[in-house]
Design a protein around this nucleic acid. Sequence first.
DNA 1: AAAGCTTGCTAAAGCGGATTATCTAAATTA
DNA 2: TAATTTAGATAATCCGCTTTAGCAAGCTTT
Lengths: 367, 367
Amino acid sequence: MSIADIASRLNISKTTVSFILNGRAQEKRISEKLVKQVTDYIAEVGYKPNALAQSLATGKSNIIGLMVEDISNPFFATIARLIEDRAYENGYKIVYCSTDNDTERAREQLKIFQDRHVDGYIIAPPPDIEADIEQLIKQGFPVVLFDRYLPKVNTDYVVVDNYYSTYNATRKLIESGHKKIAFITFLSEQTQMQERRLGYETAIKEFKLKPNLKEIKFHRNEELINEPLFSYLKKNRALDAVLFGTDHIGTCGLKMIKKLGLKIPDDLAVISFDDYSLFELYSVTAIGQPIVEIADHIITLLLKKLNKTQSSSTQKMTLSTYLAERESAPFTNVGIAKKQSKAAIHQKDNGSITTVSTGKDNKGSEL
Amino acid sequence: MSIADIASRLNISKTTVSFILNGRAQEKRISEKLVKQVTDYIAEVGYKPNALAQSLATGKSNIIGLMVEDISNPFFATIARLIEDRAYENGYKIVYCSTDNDTERAREQLKIFQDRHVDGYIIAPPPDIEADIEQLIKQGFPVVLFDRYLPKVNTDYVVVDNYYSTYNATRKLIESGHKKIAFITFLSEQTQMQERRLGYETAIKEFKLKPNLKEIKFHRNEELINEPLFSYLKKNRALDAVLFGTDHIGTCGLKMIKKLGLKIPDDLAVISFDDYSLFELYSVTAIGQPIVEIADHIITLLLKKLNKTQSSSTQKMTLSTYLAERESAPFTNVGIAKKQSKAAIHQKDNGSITTVSTGKDNKGSEL
DNA sequence: AAAGCTTGCTAAAGCGGATTATCTAAATTA
DNA sequence: TAATTTAGATAATCCGCTTTAGCAAGCTTT
């Protein structure tokens, strides 16, 4: 069943049907009578236009390409779900892919997205993808990055204040008497990871402590993460606290801590980046990302760009995280006054940074 | 850049270019010289055919529609990830959607998939979707269901042996001395849930115990799950064990158990359906689904159907689960001999049931 | 009453490919 | 040598929809 069928059946032209279908009947001065006739017939036979043909003709696919690191990771999966809902509400569909942070893989996927003529891109960019992203932007595609950004590329993005998050967490550990604090994370030169590392290092330096940085290479096979984790923790029994750089490494870390029989928080205080059910239940203090707000900003930003023809100034959003304090790292508050950053909303417009507080400090997981 | 551009640039016809692009040069007796000229030029300019136009012309989109209950659920997210990889390897892309088990929503999504001309469907079907699925099958689309199936529709599907799983778990609880065992699950008439319930009930009946069934209505807002859970557990302090019907309700349940200050397993033994990191770390005995195998069978089945024109007999696969025994429910083995179902592989062909053992009993999570 | 507007609708040309039916010139065959 | 065959390539049509440029008939205007 095509527009042509309808037209011939009703003895009118394809053009007329098309105009009616696209709500341009009024504008095109098509009589109400005919409009009714056509809409009735369409309802009767349950006709739906072929989206492919439509896309081919218009150049718009109503598809959003979503590129995450790994859709099976709860953080990305939740973001995906939230974005999906908003996208569908607005007549967009999502095609997604997982990159595993593999640049080559991401490049291929980007090609595939382009072949499919996706209208807009939501991307958690892998390393060294700058040129490809720039290319997309130059071609006029709306692109919103998230989770991390590319310092050399001027794009819209939504990230969290990684630096402050780990700085704050480390500082709290120090203030509550911890001296030998390790930061265990994935080896990565991406912004989010660098900033988390820097936050830790800054706090450590500020208090003239010795840094204990352990960077582990990511691998899909969990054993290859667990093993170095295990031996590191085993070798460094003197540690009194550990800060994990991501939920994934935190989860693995907890397993290894359990395996080693270490008591939390007595043998070892623990804080992990990212907050989810596991940490909540396991009473692990965690740095939580305002996941609903992140997704919301991402899709709002993208939809806005999709509806505008001319590109406006880029929006760079940095949301603040919250620290969910739990038993794995009791903050006994030795000394220094508690200082909570109820981050103000400062809107420096035009290509500059928007910091948005989510007002969520000290709030538990929502997942 | 289109085929026409290439053709005119090289002073040949579109047809020739198209044949070469589709690897039909030999068959169409196009001279090697010309083929080389064209392929070189294509490589030079980095031409890629427009997938939309291609789909419109061929009727094939190389897209697989994946319909899950909720992509942010770890089970579905992991399945999605595994399927994604295999699909991409085989030149297929995935568009997905989450139904929340909402029939109307699923129907709409199915329409959208059809508009997009997806080539095949992988579906965790919501209730009352039988007619729509049948319609798809009648139209000749490959459809593979998973996680649950539709008894009234003759389709391929991949599920696990839900009945035996809960039967076995319940029985083990009984055999290790538990008398007041609750089964807490989501209210649902879908096969997987019915079977899980029946497994529990059968074991309870077999040992002449009193069933304690609590069915909670699913809601996306976790509070609306936690609340009835909390009051049920609070009212029924006499329970000595609880079996949760899904990971989600298990996770919520654990939170409420924690909130109530109940000790596991002394006050309450706990087993949950589905196995993931949380349960592993929290030492919760869990019924694990062989998630890798499930995804593998789903996509293998679908790819097979996509490559065949005529539909072969339907394949119904029931995989066995494994019981990961942990501290939340120590099986002290009071009495009855341990009996492990190393399920045989029985292949009743042609429209009948294939049971595949994954040989994974007693194995921990892999996530 | 001729010129100019409106109204209501449509023919035809894309969009970028796939495919079928042909067509020509050279090579075989009879 | 005339009739076939074959190699090599192409014109034309189609997929289903959008959109531009018009067309014809009825109304106004002057």
